[in-house]
Design a protein around this nucleic acid. Sequence first.
DNA 1: GCCAACGTTGGC
DNA 2: GCCAACGTTGGC
Length: 157
Amino acid sequence: MAQWLFKTEPSEFSLEDLLAAPGRMTRWEGIRNYQARNYLRDAVRIGDPVFLYHSSCREPGIVGLMEVVRAGYPDPTCLDPESPYYDPRSTPERIRWYTVDVRLIARLSAPLPLRTLRQERALRGFQLLRRGNRLSIIPVTQTLWQHLMELTTLLPL
DNA sequence: GCCAACGTTGGC
DNA sequence: GCCAACGTTGGC
């Protein structure tokens, strides 16, 4: 089992959107980066826990805990010309990008802001905190995961 | 809105 | 295969 952090821009898709979704589940679609694609395709497994992170917003930070309910499969939005994630280079036989399904497990009693994470010595080396980090599917080591859990209080749904 | 960092594209 | 140009991400 591995642990992950998925980024989303709340103006596109937020914790609140996930709370409102049927079964509090969603397809994590629209990932268009090869490294992230490879994680989704090869490494993210059913049952893996995932922190939900809000980026490009007033207060970037971790806001929720999800779990993977379906492992990697070709992202159908690649073939949908109406979708903002449409990929003209994909074909039904060869879809370039992958997705997984996730379900919200808990929200945090309070968001865990990026600026707090930066102050934690125990989180040094966390890929999320690296300068210029742009990866939206980030693996979290067990050690980092435990440290992060110690900084949070979960509110079960 | 700015801009640093990084990924992708495409000409050669 | 190199690398300049360009586009995107994302914190601030």
